[in-house]
Write a protein that binds this DNA or RNA. Structure first.
Lengths: 200, 200
DNA sequence: TCCACTATCTAAACATTGTTTAATTTACGC
DNA sequence: GCGTAAATTAAACAATGTTTAGATAGTGGA
């Protein structure tokens, strides 16, 4: 253990900020967005409700810090997925992007719910910028003409839209039977690799 | 006026369900998602908090009915936009879809926030089905081979992703200066029409 | 016409939430 | 060691969603 229960004594927790973020992340992934609440996270950490507020300012602040974690995880995922391949380009990006969204649906959701996040500033703004630059970096190398921006927009839009619609389970109807050939995550990732996508 | 203040008397309001939905929609578009609460809508309609609950069951029910309105508006918008053109196909669909999302950002947002909506059933489920069938209807005619599903998925994903990212204002960074040639709604709609999209 | 019946709405309460305030406890620099 | 700043608590506040019991009104049948 890196930072065990310490003694779970001592008026000062020692690493309360991380402990509360951990609780928030656990609640998000296990019980959904509604379960991540200032008071609940405080209870999980064995602390009073005012303590999280002192560290994050408000619920928006806590959620923003949590979303920042999400962007960091996305970058890690992209790097890991793309490291296993020698070639590069938007189709790989789409696959990895969608894979992250499907494997961490609630986190992915939070990351784009800007109404509950603090308007830019702090960790979130930084983490998001890093992630977006990484995304663009994976798209740009394949440009052939001057309209690389258009291709980048299309690739990102396709990835984001596919991820979102998949997550909301709105694709089955368009795809037919749930057991069809295009129902697994892997298949959807493959979808982006296959024919036609090279037109980007 | 169709249903004016009536007399704003009479224990029974007469059309309270619609009045509350109107208040909710006004609050959503003018003051954002957080402003649409049971109590606030009840106040707007001059009624007690329990009255909306009687009509919608819960806040989720009210939001679901509101989202249903959104899907109806989307269908109306698609029909109106596409009626002005003789040809058909996914690129037109993308333009109209994105146009709706940009012109009604908060409504569009609500329509996809399924965590705050009632799981399928009732008006929402119906309105959503109608909208999705209409979307598919606009995509299918252009199919050439057997992979029409893939093309439909791509078109819809592109439209949805583009709409979402635009709405969150995450495109400017990818596009460069805000005043650039690709910064207006019309330009984005055009983006979908232009070259490359025919590959769908 | 009158009377049950049902739908509609109110009033008051409850539990829960985010947030603030004042006070208390600890750590840390000098 | 001491004083200052940070971390944390306890108690309160306002606002919310929801429930309960009851009041009111429209409606359909004898």
């Amino acid at each position: 253990m890196d930072h065990p229960d310490q003694q779970e004594k001592s008026y000062h927790h020692g690493d309360l900020r991380r402990a509360i973020l951990d609780a928030a992340e656990r609640r998000l992934t296990e019980n959904g967005f509604d379960a991540v609440t200032i008071r609940a996270c405080a209870r999980d950490a064995g602390v009073s409700p005012a303590a999280p507020i002192h560290h994050f300012g408000s619920l928006k602040g806590l959620l923003s810090a949590l979303a920042a974690r999400g962007f960091e995880q996305l970058v890690a995922r992209l790097d890991a997925d793309l490291a296993t391949r020698t070639e590069s380009g938007p189709s790989l990006l789409v696959g990895a992007y969608v894979a992250f969204a499907v494997s961490s649906p609630r986190m992915f959701d939070l990351m784009w719910r800007e109404d509950v996040l603090d308007p830019d500033g702090g960790d979130l703004s930084c983490a998001r910028r890093v992630a977006l630059e990484r995304l663009q970096a994976h798209v740009k190398p394949t440009q052939a003409s001057g309209d690389e921006r258009i291709r980048a927009i299309r690739a990102w839009s396709l990835a984001h839209g596919l991820a979102t619609l998949l997550q909301h389970g709105r694709m089955q109807k368009a795809l037919g039977a749930p057991g069809s050939a295009l129902s697994t995550t892997q298949d959807f990732a493959t979808l982006a690799y296959d024919d036609g996508f090279s037109s980007f």
